[in-house]
Amino acid sequence: MSAAGGAAVIRPMVGRDSAFFWEGTAAGELRVQECRGCGALRFPPGPSCPRCHSFDQGHVVAVGTGTVFSYVVHRHPPVPGKELPIVIALIDLDEGVRMVGEVADVGAEEIEIGMRLRVDFHRIDDDLTLPSWRKA
């Protein structure tokens, strides 16, 4: 599949443990895995809870806001479907888990640790909607 302008986009791997996340992005929701055994939240998702080892996993819908914990500005090599530089941040979600994501509309000189961000969703095609982050 292609993004706007015809450039190919690197597609995420979707499996049993992550399908709920990608179904959520398509619905405009940022979903975080929750253990039904002990209530622990985790990202990235996995088959069992690292705290209580339960295989009974569900999810919660996150508020979609967080704070930049760390970041990198990707300048090279080129990435299919993306214009360089790309700002990528490790975001502390308000729910207490961390998530890596692309920060849109924030320049390489403007991004900073502690910046508040909110999630947005970028529909690539009928099968893929990617989360991206913007200044809150």
Rank of each mutant, 00 (worst) to 15 (best):
T67I: 02
A7F: 03
Q33R: 05
L90A: 12
A62R: 04
R31Y: 05
H53F: 14
D56F: 00
A7Q: 13
G37V: 07
H53M: 11
G5K: 08
A136S: 10
E112Y: 08
A62V: 05
C49D: 02
S18M: 05
R42Q: 15
Q57C: 06
F43V: 02
P12L: 13
R16M: 07
F21T: 02
M99L: 12
E102Y: 02
R51M: 12
H74C: 03
P44K: 06
P45I: 04
A27R: 13
D125S: 07
S70R: 07
L117I: 06
V9N: 07
T67Q: 12
C52R: 11
G96P: 01
H74Q: 11
A8T: 06
P50W: 15
V119D: 05
P12M: 14
G66N: 06
I124Y: 00
R123V: 13
G107P: 01
V72H: 01
V60E: 06
D92H: 04
I10P: 03
A136T: 02
E112T: 09
T67Y: 05
V14M: 12
F55D: 11
G15L: 07
V79A: 05
D125N: 08
Y71P: 02
G37N: 08
A7I: 00
A104V: 01
R36C: 07
G107T: 04
T129C: 10
C49F: 06
D94K: 03
L41C: 08
D127T: 10
M99C: 02
H59R: 01
G39V: 10
A26F: 01
I10E: 11
L41Q: 09
A108P: 14
E29P: 07
A26P: 00
M99T: 01
G66R: 04
V100M: 15
P50I: 14
E110H: 03
P85A: 15
A62N: 06
E110R: 13
P50M: 14
I88K: 10
W133V: 03
A108R: 10
G24F: 14
F21P: 01
G15Q: 09
I10Y: 07
R16K: 14
C38S: 11
D92E: 13
H59L: 00
R16E: 15
S54K: 13
R31Q: 03
L41G: 07
L130S: 05
M1R: 09
V9Y: 10
G28Y: 12
P77H: 08
P131G: 10
P80E: 10
A136L: 03
G64T: 01
I113L: 10
A19M: 08
P85L: 15
S54E: 12
E34N: 10
I10A: 12
H74P: 00
V72K: 00
A89H: 05
R123P: 05
H59C: 09
S70F: 06
V103I: 04
G15V: 05
G66T: 02
G96Y: 06
L128K: 08
G101V: 09
V97Y: 08
I10D: 09
V63E: 15
A7K: 14
S2E: 12
V72C: 12
P50N: 13
P12D: 14
D17T: 13
R36D: 07
P78S: 13
T67S: 13
V79K: 06
